[in-house]
Amino acid sequence: MTPPPAPLTLYGAAASGSVAVEAALTLLGRPYTLVEGATWADAAARDRVAASNPMRQIPTLVLPDGEVMTESAAILIYLADLHPEVRLSPAPDDPLRLQFLRWMLYVSSAIYSLHWIKPDVTRIGAPESARDAVVAAVHDRIAFCWAQMDHQLVPGRWLLGDELTVLDLYVATVSRFGPWRERFHAVAPRMAEVVRRVDEEPRLAALWRERFPQG
């Protein structure tokens, strides 16, 4: 009898990018211990994760052997590839693999990364007095990037066709961040239809409700 997989430790927080990882672990049936803490707002949370991730950011995933993974896109790709039987990512020889990798990294670098600016606009050299203008500009850029992705994808039932992947989970999570779903629906109507299906996925309904009510 095959023993169950060893539990993982995930540093994360409600209403954050770590919820996409929680969604993937839920679909994979992988047990994990959640260490809760909003590192962008809580010094104690930053201190808790520091031993595993010197950047003091979430999500941070600690594997059973103690190895650490950071970066949400990398964690999601790794977990999906670790369990190919669940089919949460196209296989390396699948023609869809190129677009899968392209858009996973696009969401991470072109969209998710912009949210790092908003809690502290001085990170990019802007004065605190310009915060409202900077955040508005960031939201405009995020909307533009979602629109560009929407123009280039031809979704099926899911973003890449007939099978749900961690890309769907990633977009469903990151699109909950400001400037919120109303604007996402306006600029990315094709993806919005898919994201509504992800929101309604029965296996994830409790997770979305508890960890990231729709913004």
Rank of each mutant, 00 (worst) to 15 (best):
Q214S: 14
T173G: 07
A24H: 14
T26N: 12
L79N: 13
R56N: 05
A136Y: 01
V194P: 02
M1D: 13
D168G: 08
A147S: 14
V198G: 09
R190D: 01
R123G: 07
L159A: 06
A126H: 03
T26M: 13
P4N: 10
W40R: 15
G37S: 07
D132L: 05
A206W: 04
Y170D: 08
A192F: 05
L98Q: 07
R141F: 03
M1V: 13
S18M: 09
P3K: 12
R131Q: 03
D42V: 01
V21E: 09
A14V: 10
G215S: 13
I58A: 07
S18H: 07
K118D: 09
G37A: 02
I58Q: 05
Q99C: 00
D93E: 12
T122P: 04
S108D: 12
T122E: 00
L114M: 08
R211G: 08
G37L: 07
D162S: 11
A91F: 02
D93S: 07
Y170C: 12
A133L: 01
Q99N: 01
S108I: 00
N53T: 00
L34R: 15
V68A: 10
S109F: 08
R196A: 15
H115C: 06
A15M: 12
T26Q: 15
A172V: 09
Y78R: 15
L153S: 02
K118A: 15
W158K: 08
T173N: 11
L34E: 10
G125C: 03
Y170V: 09
T2E: 13
L96W: 02
A43H: 01
P4Q: 15
P64G: 12
L63Q: 14
Q99L: 05
W180Y: 13
V174Y: 12
V134S: 04
A74R: 04
R123D: 02
L164P: 09
G29F: 10
T26C: 11
F212P: 02
V121G: 00
A133Q: 00
W146E: 04
G29V: 03
M149E: 04
V86F: 10
E36H: 15
I58R: 02
R196K: 14
P189T: 03
E200F: 06
T165S: 14
G215E: 13
P179S: 02
I142H: 00
P54A: 03
L159I: 10
T173D: 12
V121E: 01
L153C: 00
A6V: 01
L27H: 12
S113C: 08
Y11G: 03
Y112I: 07
S108L: 15
V135G: 03
L88R: 09
R46W: 04
Q214C: 14
E182G: 12
R30A: 08
S129P: 06
E67I: 12
V86Y: 09
P202E: 00
P119C: 05
F184C: 02
D65Y: 15
R190K: 11
E67A: 15
V35Q: 13
E128C: 00
